[in-house]
Write a protein that binds this DNA or RNA. Structure first.
Length: 290
DNA sequence: TCTAACCTGATC
DNA sequence: GATCAGGTTAGA
């Protein structure tokens, strides 16, 4: 659920609330959800000040004093909230941190896919997942995207979901971006035309900017740390709207399964027209250079 | 490159 | 009771 816009909203809300504050205690209530890395000792916990809050892809990163770094991945149902300790903890509250302003930072995750990790910042930076992340969408121009897409096979939808290609996109925003760009999700990533890639970059920026500004999308579980639902859901053009009319042309939105993920698109606005044929000479038996 | 697996809960 | 879900990844 939480994709780049949701995690960005969490970071923006936690930054002023946590920077400069100390985490007085850190407790894990379900084994395995809180992990220590890089030989860092977290039990017993020594109070640490939060130095910075940022985001990389779908990862939320807290820098702590003493060269420590905390990373939180919300995966499907993870949620961070900042609450008064007297408020009863919701079910599936797996990690809690006491903040020195009297509040409590809580990590709730029913499906328990999410993780909170505390490590040295150097160890965190070397984590395979973080290292493998592609560029932030904001840092990607059409040329760079074209180069990355050219090296990949498979439907553009699946390729955009791959965090190594570009970081932070998930199922909601890939569907919304492809609709905005007028591209069918099954188009081969390495056969997009230059103007289509320009449109794709523009759609990516536009959709993500709008989603961030409207607080992200709430399908079911997502809430910002102070409990607000995202309002971008109401502006989805295809995601979650199967059978409903496309907001651009009125054609019913279709939902199909593509590489295991529910995929929404408008068959009219996102035509699956014939692509420029792959030049025969461009085909190499295996891994050849073009 | 695709599927199954990791989990719980909501919905069909 | 079966199916589906916003993510990631190990294994085929």
């Amino acid at each position: 659920m939480p994709e780049l816009p949701e995690v960005e909203n969490v970071a923006r809300e936690l930054r002023p609330a946590l920077c400069g504050r100390r985490l007085l205690a850190l407790d894990c209530h379900f084994p395995g959800v809180l992990i220590a890395g890089g030989g860092v000792e977290i039990d017993p916990w020594r109070p640490r000040r939060v130095v910075a809050v940022h985001r990389r892809g779908k990862l939320l990163l807290l820098d702590l004093e003493g060269d420590l770094g905390m990373s939180v991945h919300l995966r499907m149902t993870g949620r961070l909230s900042l609450e008064d300790p007297s408020t009863p903890r919701r079910p599936h509250t797996h990690v809690t941190a006491a903040v020195d302003d009297g509040r409590e930072l809580r990590f709730v995750d029913p499906r328990r896919f999410g993780r909170v990790e505390v490590a040295t910042r150097q160890h965190r930076a070397g984590t395979p997942f973080l290292r493998s992340l592609g560029p932030e969408p904001q840092d990607l121009d059409a040329d760079a995207l074209a180069a990355r897409l050219a090296a990949r096979r498979g439907p553009v939808k699946s390729v955009l979901l791959d965090q190594r290609l570009v970081a932070g996109l998930g199922n909601i925003y890939v569907d919304e971006i492809l609709h905005r760009a007028g591209l069918h999700p099954r188009l081969e990533a390495d056969r997009l035309l230059a103007p289509e890639i320009v449109g794709l970059v523009e759609a990516m920026r536009a959709v993500l900017d709008e989603a961030i500004e409207s607080g992200g999308s709430t399908i079911r579980d997502y809430r910002s740390p102070d409990g607000r639902a995202g309002e971008f859901t109401a502006r989805h053009r295809v995601f979650g709207r199967a059978g409903e009319p496309c907001l651009v042309c009125g054609t019913p939105v279709r939902k199909v399964r593509l590489s295991g993920r529910g995929t929404h698109f408008c068959p009219q606005c996102q035509p699956r027209r014939r692509r420029r044929p792959r030049r025969r000479t461009a085909r190499r038996p295996r891994g050849g250079t073009p």
